[in-house]
Design a protein around this nucleic acid. Sequence first.
DNA 1: CTTTTCTCCGCAAACCTTTGCGCTAACCTT
DNA 2: AAGGTTAGCGCAAAGGTTTGCGGAGAAAAG
Lengths: 341, 341
Amino acid sequence: MSKRHVSLKTLAQALNVSISTVSRALKNHPDIGPEVTQKVQALARELNYTPNPLAMGLLKNRTHTIGVIVPDLVTHFFSSIISGIEQVANENGYYIVIRSSYESYEKEKECIENLLKLHVEGIIMCLAQETTEYSHFDALVAEELPLVFFDRVCRADEVATVVVDNREAARRITRHFFERGYRRIAHIAGPPQLNITRERIEGYQQGLADCNLPFDRELLTHCDLSIASATAATQRLLALPSRPDAIFGVNDTTAFAAMKEIKRQRLRIPEDVGLVGFTDEFHATVVEPTLTSVMHPTFEMGREAALLFLAQAAAKVPLPPRQTVLTTQLVVRESSTRALD
Amino acid sequence: MSKRHVSLKTLAQALNVSISTVSRALKNHPDIGPEVTQKVQALARELNYTPNPLAMGLLKNRTHTIGVIVPDLVTHFFSSIISGIEQVANENGYYIVIRSSYESYEKEKECIENLLKLHVEGIIMCLAQETTEYSHFDALVAEELPLVFFDRVCRADEVATVVVDNREAARRITRHFFERGYRRIAHIAGPPQLNITRERIEGYQQGLADCNLPFDRELLTHCDLSIASATAATQRLLALPSRPDAIFGVNDTTAFAAMKEIKRQRLRIPEDVGLVGFTDEFHATVVEPTLTSVMHPTFEMGREAALLFLAQAAAKVPLPPRQTVLTTQLVVRESSTRALD
DNA sequence: CTTTTCTCCGCAAACCTTTGCGCTAACCTT
DNA sequence: AAGGTTAGCGCAAAGGTTTGCGGAGAAAAG
């Protein structure tokens, strides 16, 4: 399709010199005479010569490419992280190739195989929700290909990861509810296999313990992070004989779905039910009431993941797996601040 | 870093045959005897051989790579479109490399140069807001490199584009307001240089004409699509001596910002001020009141853009620039439906 | 027994770049 | 003037793949 690219050969033939002379002239090699160097550089500029990345890649065995796999592209959480990855990657001369796993284990495997075929120099990814078995990373680990997990992680003793202080954040939320007078604090958790689910549940339980509240198994329910599933979870909680007076959603999407359902049932937020999310998207400030949420440094998470990749890529020997833990902050808004008695 | 890849050479040496024999054996070339073919294929499978894409690219002058440039990655609108592009691209064996222009003209130029250096097979993009000059596409057009614009477009007589029926949609919104009894209908438009801005303004004016409403210059104001700017625009409108009773935002983000500001000023939606957005993100159903909006087929737009690219890539001769126009639908919710007298 | 016709495989070029080494002049030294 | 030095350039290999062509050996045909 597109017109032929100009190569060293093009220049060499036009000037009647050898290819190697052109190559050296372009880098001001002392072996090449000043006039020849002049002419070559002039023509290169004129014809807008740029080295063929494929040829360079073949020679140096490098593609300057990072594979990025996310469960989906559309969620603000992931797109924001990708944005962070992209920034650091570009600043360091890397391109990012994106694929989404659609939360599917099979697709995730496929993505990895595909990216390996492309000879990416590393992979930065977030596990799919379905993934419960991690042997498809064996090849990467064995080949010592730089690999970084963010948010949802596995094999943290082998590969670099970047996560947030999930336990601490969940604990803080629970205590915040308690301080605001809520006593039956429920948690809509994510799929059990995810580390973020486990950690946030642990933090939730720790928070309850801190406040001398009993852990009521009824008040812990799961969803698959979809809106429908979060709505159903909310309905289960609200239908309990002894209804919760506060709900902590595993992420903002869950919280938004819960908010919709709570309002649909004509319950008031925060008076009847307190609500807190996790991530703190922009929309948390738009909904009514505004949503209390944990500020998740998504952009930073992307940047950190990219930095972890760079560190591994630069290292001559395999680096010990590094865990980066980012700190979050609770942003208190209307949905959890009812007037205290 | 990563262990050496297995190449034809690896197989050839291991089996004591020539590289070309291995190459042919893998494709079941009749020239190669059955036992040799057997052995080669067996070893290839065992060692998990895959052709080196760099070598293939060098040979065929193809990279199987599409460059995608968006103003930003974080906005739902763009990430959703990217998702559509990614799907079609992957279905057809292409990888997508993403870069964001951050709405900057300079960065946009830089992105294009960068992607060209990577030898992408085409570019699918949305113009940056700052871009008012289009000569940096000369090279692409001249090289006949497949190029597709989506949403914000230029040079539509030369390059393929995919857009929505902006005029029609804006017209429909305006008439919807009129039917609901609103008479002073304002429009917060985007930056003047964008085609979407112009087209939606035209539709807005046409809608006014349809309803025999005068076009009041005061009721048309611009913003740069940022939240702060949209808030300021709303303030300007609400401060008018004769305040508008309806506002049509150029997109949902603008409408959300307007909603926040209207509520801050203790005005009621939809009673005092009707509000309509454009794009119809998920959050339109979460805010209170729920937001009437134009359903913008973003995912489809991404798919269509990718299909336009594929058509060009497959064509032997340059295709005449094709315009794909997607139709939208007005989704009426609470923010524009006050009780009629 | 020689010639033809296969079968089966290797050589080399092409895609593009880098780089160690070798080669040819011209210049300098003694 | 004869030998050595050096500036300035080209050859060739390497990286991996495909593919036209040529070549060797064996079997079939004369």
